[in-house]
Design a protein around this nucleic acid. Structure first.
Lengths: 223, 223
DNA sequence: CCGAACACGGGACTTTAGTCGCAGCCTGTT
DNA sequence: AACAGGCTGCGACTAAAGTCCCGTGTTCGG
């Protein structure tokens, strides 16, 4: 159980919470393990509560009935998911899949609500986290609504490069993965990457992507 | 001031709050009036707090630098806006414009936080409302990411018809308005409307839109 | 009553995105 | 060494969306 407290302290919006609050949450947390590719929960089904990633990678996505997938988040240690459903008690807003073998903790909605009702500081922290989630979704809306695939891809490359603070993006993301995150398909991602390479903005180093001109890439992302 | 309490009771997520809570909020609320077309606040600027619409229509939108506008919400009496910024203290996530002459009340973030910290019930209500907002944004993401203009337009027509619970949509929305809500342009909306009419799904009755076949329209919206 | 502003109809065209099909290339396995 | 499967490269094609442009009806104020 103290393991769970250590984890909760790594959750960005919980780190300022007093020890008793974290202990109360930890006491309510249930450990769950999933193997790579396994589905954690499915969109539209009733929700159990909020999940915290302990180890591994979790993919949050929406599936359309024609088989396309739109990836909303890729989560790692210390990040939470299904907050929305845990907060409003509605069905799961998206599908969660284990990207790798992983360990997550589940805190049921009723427990969370109970604890939040007794600790206003926690309640406000949850409010802020929900607001951040909404803000992130708004950037997605703007991306999808007013940016071209080229622009979105440029943004994705920049954020990925930044995440590994390097000019090269290790071959973790396949073109298929990128397509799912951009709301498009594999071929278009490939074509756009080639076009960016033809313009001298990026280059391929044995299937790794190297950013040659971060300025111009940023300019592409702005449009 | 009792005017403000009456209004707050019409806010969906506040209606179960006890009288003292509403009075505390009302005491903190400042009335503001705007004339049609006036800008209430601009995206990216520091936020003052949360707003409640008393009278009139408020349009929440994102503007891109190439002049395109994406309408996120159209709000009326008893609805709130800029919740996100009021919750997390960040800049305004979008631009708010008075669609008609209107009266709104502003509750500053610090006052809201103070009151919420003393009333856990209110805090939880805010959590739920933030979750709903996020859920709504997620439907927008799905719309923009995996639906065609035709599908989105079909959905818009259905929800508008439903809002006036009739099969005809009064000429309140111009094609330009619809385009802004769908993330597209006027010509495309017009073309798509004509195409739906050619398929016998809708018809025009002296510039009003009449839904002839709600089933097929719903089918278009599903894809 | 006239003209300006606005909303709409609609044709012609360009660009962007998505689809299809197939070949090549690694990587790990048998 | 042979092979399967996943990832990629790429051309050809179609469909969807966006752009440009102009004509027309309506409304509203001078």
């Amino acid at each position: 159980m103290s393991i769970a407290v250590d984890l909760l302290r790594r959750v960005s919006y919980l780190q300022d919470q007093p020890q008793p609050v974290l202990e109360a949450l930890a006491a309510a947390a249930l450990p769950l393990t999933f193997t790579a590719g396994e589905i954690i929960f499915v969109q539209e089904e009733p929700s159990l509560g909020v999940y915290v990633v302990d180890r591994g990678e979790v993919k949050i996505s929406r599936l359309s009935r024609d088989g396309r997938e739109l990836v909303l988040h890729l989560l790692h240690t210390g990040e939470t998911f299904n907050d929305i459903a845990a907060f409003d008690g509605g069905p799961n807003p998206a599908t969660a899949t284990a990207g790798t073998d992983c360990l997550v903790w589940l805190i049921r909605r009723s427990d969370l609500k109970q604890i939040a009702m007794h600790h206003p500081g926690l309640a406000w922290a949850l409010i802020e986290s929900a607001a951040r989630r909404a803000r992130y979704l708004l950037t997605l809306v703007e991306d999808l609504g007013m940016r071209s695939v080229r622009g979105r891809l440029a943004r994705l490359l920049l954020t990925e490069a930044c995440a590994y603070n390097a000019d090269a993006i290790p071959r973790l993301l396949t073109q298929e993965d990128m397509a799912a995150r951009l709301g498009t398909v594999r071929e278009v991602v490939g074509r756009t990457l080639r076009s960016l390479a033809a313009d001298g903005i990026i280059a391929f180093d044995r299937h790794r992507i190297v950013i040659l001109d971060a300025q111009r890439l940023a300019a592409e992302a702005e449009i």
